[in-house]
Design a protein around this nucleic acid. Structure first.
Lengths: 216, 216
DNA sequence: ATTTGCATGTCGACT
DNA sequence: AGTCGACGTGCAAAT
């Protein structure tokens, strides 16, 4: 097959490429897996990452993160890093493209949790309805930082965990963890919505739900 | 550009394809984002999913899940589903490949959490060191199923949360949530390892750590 | 349709 | 290198 030397040259020069090939994939590392023979799409990026995609799903069938080393012995692509290894056994190359001048800039994103935190901080009184002389972002505790902590005139702390989407049970467990290190504090989940079970669990622990979303 | 009608035909016939193009991407849905002009790799799969990759990372810059609808108006790829929308504004097509006969079978995977659960179940005595007349997998509680619950001769319940990798603080909070619904139970985290903070948090709550891994 | 928890989660930030 | 938490998490299973 005439494309094998081309592939070899891409690997040698760390050129990113897309390879459509009949192949199978063996992975061993954190888990281990086999992908049996079929036509799959392999993407190599010059950060060292490798991913093998099937005909559906967003997630690749197999993948290896950045800073992996790729090599090619004529038939087999091998990607390995400290503790993981992928073998792509190539039966037949169907398509092969180099990806030159591939851009690496990132997206600019809105509607993040950070924005909701800012919003709540700015309009604390409206959302929490308790006057606080101090409000701290990323309040540090023994078991990690809390999104927002306000201190009222009685020195009582109001601990708020903010979520960008509907709050679930595990969000409440996260809040409880923080509450344990801050004796006497009141707990809040602030989110656009909350699931019924999470809501029940929240109120059983004398915590309150605050509605907050991205609309004006 | 001669490739635009080709792209149109792929979209019309729901043919999966890889498109390398100079483009920008606008997303609005759960969040909103902008990816400014650059050369990016777009993958369309016939399950309706779309993803736009940059030159690094495993994750795409933008994506849309399965069951989305793709259309093309000559310049712009549009993918939308119930509540999300992506626009890919194409300045120039650099490469375009149809992906025929793309395989959709999945990997066969080993070293899952399920395997660790089986292992612990099979050698309960060795790991937990308490004789139990009953051991239940996926034991149902008000706040979700527990991996393993054993009942000893004093009717005391031993609640085990299994993790396939190093246990962290949030794994302990998950265990505690289950313990709350089962009064008088003893709690265990079984994992290959545990972080120092998680270990401290675990012992503060009178729970035990059990070492279990994928080796023989 | 909603909710939950696993995942080779990935990724970024901070220690 | 280790730990932690957000993420448009994705994804499957259970309800």
């Amino acid at each position: 097959m005439i494309l094998l030397p081309v592939l070899a040259s891409y690997v040698a020069s760390n050129t990113p490429f897309v390879l459509y090939a009949n192949c199978n994939v063996v992975y061993d590392g954190r888990a281990s897996s086999l992908l049996s023979d079929g036509n799959f799409l392999t993407i190599y990026k010059s950060d060292g990452s490798l991913q093998i995609h099937g005909a559906d799903k967003i997630m690749p069938r197999n993948y290896q993160g950045a800073k992996s080393r790729l090599s090619f012995d004529g038939r087999q692509l091998v990607s390995h890093n400290k503790r993981e290894k992928i073998l792509v056994n190539i039966n037949q190359i169907l398509q092969l493209l180099p990806l030159q001048e591939w851009s690496d800039h990132s997206i600019v994103i809105n509607k993040t949790e950070k924005e909701l935190v800012e919003k709540l901080l700015h309009d604390w009184q409206y959302f929490i309805d308790v006057e606080c002389h101090t409000i701290v972002r990323e309040y540090s505790t023994d078991y990690g930082p809390v999104d927002l902590v306000g201190v009222d005139i009685f020195d009582c702390k109001h601990v708020v965990e903010v979520k960008r989407r509907k709050a679930s049970i595990k969000d409440v467990t996260q809040l409880r963890k923080y509450l344990e290190c801050i004796p006497g504090a009141k707990g809040y989940i602030a989110a656009p919505n909350i699931s019924p079970k999470a809501s029940k669990y929240l109120s059983q622990h004398q915590c309150r739900f605050i509605t907050i979303d991205f609309d004006a």
